[in-house]
């Protein structure tokens, strides 16, 4: 089947599945435009935004099967597929965005680990940003782990997240995302945790008074491509795709940071209380999670746990260099 579908052709059409976040959507358009420009219209991209072709797991399978050529997915939804992605679910592994870019995405360990996805019939293209996850609720700002005690918080269905929140003393409740807004309105759950972009674009700030920048987990998007499709391209076509992807990625990371700033401003204007946690406060959370061996759980969930240690090592020497 592959032979007939993936021959080298002068004109190429790519089915691109994208997520709902604004910065990713605009970066998708950017990629579409750049590819078109660099190839003089020989390579076209059919862009499907807002997960209309299915949720992350479905589209990733679609890329494996060759139904979709390129897909943007959250690593958290794919960690059952590529168990090394559990690394990115570890709370307080990364402390700021810059070290994510430098080490988490582009460090030696990261590069090797991310490219391993070729074993699963997928080609790694890029890492995009979804952002640090933050805690929102209606009753009080979160400053210490004790503030989370007994709170019914909607989390993702992910063993590491569940373990971490249980260790903090919260009552984590998995729930469909589409029900979350109403559930918060009706207090079926006390709070939720998501990146600022999602909190803002889904108008969660209308039903949640307190947004605490706990920045507990950094959730990235991964951009994946069907390797047969990629390998059937000419060298020149490959260059075009790679160049466009590189530029779209840069654009996405920049835009994502801008959008977070804008979101914070708008939500403050709406009347939300937004509080930042100091590094010491974050360390309190990290301490409890470490005591509960959340790092261990994350490591044990990975296919190649040695990457976890290597990444930590890299991070430590990076932090020393930066005078952290």
């Amino acid at each position: 089947r592959t032979s007939s579908k993936y021959k080298t052709q002068e004109e190429v059409n790519l089915i691109f599945s994208n997520v709902t976040s604004n910065s990713a959507k605009e970066a998708g358009v950017k990629f579409q435009e750049l590819v078109n420009e660099y190839s003089d219209g020989k390579i076209t991209v059919d862009l499907f935004q807002d997960n209309v072709l299915g949720d992350d797991k479905t589209v990733a399978e679609g890329v494996q099967n060759g139904d979709i050529d390129i897909a943007v997915c959250s690593t958290s939804s794919l960690s059952t597929l590529n168990k090394d992605y559990y690394l990115y679910d570890t709370p307080y592994l990364f402390l700021n965005a810059q070290e994510v870019y430098d080490i988490g995405f582009n460090g030696e360990t990261a590069k090797e680990m991310l490219n391993n996805i070729s074993d699963l019939g997928l080609k790694h293209m890029a890492m995009w940003e979804n952002g640090f996850r933050n805690y929102t609720n209606n009753s009080h700002p979160i400053e210490t782990p004790a503030d989370c005690k007994g709170q019914k918080i909607r989390t993702m269905e992910n063993p590491i997240h569940l373990k971490a929140w249980k260790a903090i003393g919260a009552n984590p409740t998995p729930m469909a995302f589409s029900e979350l807004f109403t559930a918060m309105q009706q207090n079926t759950v006390d709070g939720q945790e998501n990146p600022l972009g999602i909190i803002y674009s889904n108008r969660f700030y209308e039903v949640q008074k307190y947004i605490s920048l706990t920045q507990h987990v950094y959730t990235p998007y991964v951009v994946l491509m069907n390797p047969d499709k990629y390998n059937a391209l000419t060298e020149e076509q490959k260059d075009i795709i790679n160049r466009a992807m590189e530029e779209a990625t840069e654009y996405q990371l920049k835009l994502s940071a801008e959008e977070e700033e804008k979101g914070i401003e708008e939500m403050k204007k709406y009347g939300c209380e937004i509080n930042t946690l100091t590094d010491e406060q974050k360390m309190e959370f990290q301490k409890i999670m470490e005591d509960a061996d959340v790092f261990g759980v994350a490591k044990a969930s990975m296919k190649n746990p040695e990457y976890f240690d290597k990444m930590l090592e890299e991070l430590n020497s990076y932090r020393e260099q930066e005078g952290f």
Partner: peptide, 20 residues
């Protein structure tokens, strides 16, 4: 065919760890 592929990739479910 699909099941065979899933089996090759060794996918498991998030909460129960059940092979998909």
């Amino acid at each position: 065919e699909l099941t065979y592929k899933q089996w090759l990739f060794g996918k498991t479910s998030p909460a129960l760890g059940l092979p998909l």
